[in-house]
Design a protein around this nucleic acid. Sequence first.
DNA 1: CTAACTGTATCAATCATATTAATACAGTTA
DNA 2: TAACTGTATTAATATGATTGATACAGTTAG
Lengths: 126, 126
Amino acid sequence: MLQLDYRSGESLYVQIKENFKRLILSKSLKEDELLPSVRALASSLAINVNTVQRAYRELEQEGYIYSIPGKGNFVAGKIEDAKQKSVSEIREELSKIVEKARAFGVEQEEFQEMIKEFYNKGGKQS
Amino acid sequence: MLQLDYRSGESLYVQIKENFKRLILSKSLKEDELLPSVRALASSLAINVNTVQRAYRELEQEGYIYSIPGKGNFVAGKIEDAKQKSVSEIREELSKIVEKARAFGVEQEEFQEMIKEFYNKGGKQS
DNA sequence: CTAACTGTATCAATCATATTAATACAGTTA
DNA sequence: TAACTGTATTAATATGATTGATACAGTTAG
């Protein structure tokens, strides 16, 4: 169901989170679809239950899934809300970087130029 | 000469670095001006010599100062080069954030809008 | 009602890293 | 040579992130 990379440097629970986010955002997992149980996934990945649990908990806090104790974890509806939240965090980070950049005298125009660059570079698909 | 904030969460050597960067970028410290000796500054701040030393070492690596063993640490010339380096690091961070944002479907226009906001918000002085 | 599933909470062990400190080494100069 | 300078090495400490062991609790099929 899911592949872990032990050499990536990323922690296991973060990898699990990112995997499910991708699957949900791309609609590979549909609204209200049941996710593997924490124990089933932990077992199949040969990791601890709590590691999966932590990923699920945070996915729920971020609005990507909802949990029903005793039943399971399911893909949430209104994924747009979750997206919004993620974007909010990105805004936070961006805000700090802008602050830094200003301290070094980087003007708005220059900053905008960088964005353009990055959007063109990374933009090979879509 | 310099003020430390023990409640800021920032480590001491980082605070020292930022302080001197600001002083140098604002020309409060002029080219080739002598900085306080590691021991003098450590003593006046009541901290360890190596904490100051670390700040100075990194300031040198980043091109803000130069060091002459036995003599002291001095404000570097060509501060523009140091600025460039700092901006390069900011670019790195920015690149990662753009990548993230794209993963959540944030379009370039929306991103540019955020930048505008932040530049206007933060822009109370100058 | 009970067995076998589900998720959850608590606490501890582990690991990694950042930060600071103690101390010895080495160059400069009056 | 004494009293300054910076530097390198190593260790102690603190902090936080990550994972694990284990117990608690809800749901449901039989």
